[in-house]
Every structure is written in C-alpha cells, then in structure tokens.
Design a protein around this nucleic acid. Structure first.
Length: 233
DNA sequence: GCCAACGTTGGC
DNA sequence: GCCAACGTTGGC
C-alpha cells in the first residue's frame, strides 16, 4: 500500500465520506519518530545552510504511465499536474511514515522536483511548489480508493497530503541513469550526491534535498537550471 | 522485542 | 514480467 503515487484529484476538495474502519490496530509507529525526524531534518538543514535557514527542496515520485491499482488508474504525470485547474493538485496516497513525515515538514513556497517513476524513462521531469501545507489525506477514508486505510480514524487521521502547483518543466529531462552516474562518482569523490536518497533510500517516495551551497554544484545543472545536492537522508 | 512471511516499490 | 530491496505484519 505505501505507494507514493497520486491520482488527479482536485486540490483541497472537502470530502466527508467513509466512516473509516472499525479495526483498532497498530499504534502509529511514525508518531514517535516523526518528531525525531523532523527535528533532525531541521538540524540537518540548518547546519547545511550555515545557519541561514534556507528552505528545503524536495523530490516527489509519481507514475506517469497508466497502471491499475484495485481497478483505479494511478497514473499522474507532470503533464497531468499542469493540466489541472490552477495547475494545482493534492498529493494524496502516500502511505509510508517516513514519507508522510517529510510531507508534514514541507513549508509554503518550497519547491519540489517531480520525479517520474515506474515508467519507460524514469527521472526528474520538472519543478513544482508547495501551495498548501500538510492536511489530512481524504483518500484514507474512502473505501473505494486504492489507498483506503481502515485503520485510520477521522478524528485522528494517519496520513497527510500537501497541495502542489506546477512551476515549470526542467530545461532538460534528467534521467535516473544520469543521476546514478553522478551518485556513483560522488560516492568515490565525496561529492554532493553521494548520499542522495533516491539511491540510499530506495523506496522512499518523498524525500528532501537541499540547494547546493558554495561550490557544490552539479554538472547536470549547468544549463542554469536548479542546482541541488542531497541531504544525508 | 525478535524475526519470518508477506506485500509493495520500482528499476531493468 | 522478473526480482532485489525493504517496510509492515503478526505469531511467539
């Protein structure tokens, strides 16, 4: 179930259906670690930004090609985002605690790379920005939704989402293979992508990045596109 | 709290 | 479609 993909659903639409489930299950194992992770994230960002408190960047995965999950097509590409009203959509369907905690750490106006996954040509396709901070993901209460979670209660929702708005396409698509080449080189040289979460946290669908500082600049960004380095996450 | 079974992610 | 990686579940 923890799939990062989302569906083209209207942003911030009110939703009241689904009584939720009756099962009392596992304690939320992410709750305790949420604080730890968030504070660690802050420390990490702060130290890397040399105390300048620059905002984080993010990378978020979605599947651009059709695939049915419990009978529902989960395809959502950057073109789909761009086609939304106001080019804005909610990023629903995240069902992994670490990814959720990153969603909750996102701040208005922070930018995120739109990553195309599980497709013919995986890679970074474009840029979007956070236009609404974390709020309950309504799909967790919808019985017919592929990401329905009967263990989540309406009065204490487990899962969150943010609203994102299309910013622009990358000046050039950045294929996974190219990122991997850099990552591998940087592992040897101690370069900025040596710990990139895309490779070190293989299945994490929402992950933090930080803007490169000083000389830490990526070759792939030399067309005056966004430079970025990874955090240690 | 351990850990084997299981299910999902996602590149190839 | 295969399958390695890895998060979650649940018995004990």
């Amino acid at each position: 179930m923890p799939r990062a993909r989302k569906r083209p659903a209207g942003a911030a639409r009110p939703d009241k259906k689904g009584p939720g489930g009756k099962r009392t299950k596992t304690e939320d194992p992410g709750e305790a670690s949420a604080k730890v992770e968030n504070s660690s994230l802050q420390e990490t960002s702060a130290s890397r930004d040399c105390g300048k408190n620059l905002s984080s960047y993010w990378l978020m995965k979605s599947e651009p090609e059709s695939r049915l999950e419990r009978g529902v097509d989960v395809k959502f590409s950057i073109e789909d985002l761009r086609a939304q009203p106001k080019q804005t959509a909610c990023w629903d369907g995240v069902r992994n605690y670490q990814a959720r905690n990153f969603l909750r750490a996102m701040k208005l106006e922070e930018e995120a790379f739109f990553y195309h996954s599980n497709c013919r040509e995986p890679g970074i396709a474009g840029l979007m920005k956070i236009v609404k901070e974390a709020y309950p993901d309504h799909t967790q209460f919808e019985k017919n939704n592929p990401h329905y979670d009967p263990s989540s209660k309406e009065d204490n929702p487990k899962w969150s989402m943010v609203d994102v708005q299309f910013v622009r396409m990358m000046k050039r698509f950045i294929p996974l293979a190219e990122l991997k080449t850099h990552h591998q080189a940087h592992r040897a040289t101690g370069g900025p992508l040596k710990n990139m979460a895309l490779f070190t946290r293989q299945r994490l669908s929402v992950q933090p990045l930080t803007r490169g500082k000083n000389g830490s600049r990526l070759l792939i960004t030399c067309q005056s596109d966004h430079e970025f380095t990874c955090t240690s996450w």
